[in-house]
C-alpha cells in the first residue's frame, strides 16, 4: 500500500507491504526487501555450518555422486538438484569425507534442507558453493 515517509527533508510516497515477516518496498525505481533482523543463512534462522551442504532452493535431488565415507577434494561435485526445469550443481570446496547424506535421489526438498555433511580433518573450510550447471 502507499506509504508516506520522510527522506532527507522530503516526503516520498512509496509502495510497501509486509510479506512473511519481510518488508517489500518500491522506492526510487527499485524493489527491495528488508528484514528487521538481518538473519544469516538463506531462509533459515540457524547458522549454517561450513561443512554442511543445504538446498539453496526448493527442488528435486536428481543425482548423488558420492557415498558416505568417500574422500572429497575441494571443488568436487556432490549433488545435482533440479528446480524450475534447470539443473544446479552443488559442490563443496572443503576437503574431507562425506559424513552424512540426508537425502535420496528423487526426493523433493525444501529450501535450506540439510542434504549432506562433510567431515573435515581440520577446522578450515569454505562455504558450500552452488553454481549453474552450465557455466
Amino acid at each position: 500500500m502507499r506509504i508516506e515517509a520522510e527522506f532527507k527533508g522530503q516526503v516520498d510516497v512509496v509502495e510497501a507491504e509486509w510479506i512473511a515477516g519481510r518488508l517489500w518496498y518500491h522506492w526510487r525505481g527499485e524493489t527491495r526487501v528488508w528484514e528487521p533482523s538481518q538473519r544469516r543463512g538463506r531462509g533459515s534462522g540457524e547458522q549454517i555450518a561450513r561443512e554442511v551442504i543445504v538446498a539453496p532452493m526448493p527442488g528435486k535431488v536428481t543425482k548423488i555422486l558420492r557415498q558416505i565415507g568417500d574422500p572429497i577434494q575441494a571443488g568436487d561435485l556432490i549433488l545435482v538438484m533440479e528446480a524450475m526445469k534447470m539443473e544446479y550443481s552443488l559442490r563443496a570446496e572443503v576437503a574431507g569425507r562425506i559424513g552424512r547424506l540426508e537425502c535420496q535421489v528423487g526426493e523433493q526438498v525444501s529450501l535450506g534442507k540439510k542434504l549432506a555433511q562433510i567431515e573435515t580433518e581440520s577446522e578450515a573450510g569454505t562455504e558450500p558453493k552452488v553454481d549453474g550447471a552450465m557455466k
Partner: peptide, 15 residues
C-alpha cells in the same frame, strides 16, 4: 527511511 517505512506499513494489510 526504510525503518520508518517499516513502522508505518501495517502488518495485517495484504495487497
Amino acid at each position: 527511511f526504510v525503518k520508518s517505512l517499516a513502522q508505518k506499513t501495517p502488518r495485517a494489510y495484504r495487497s
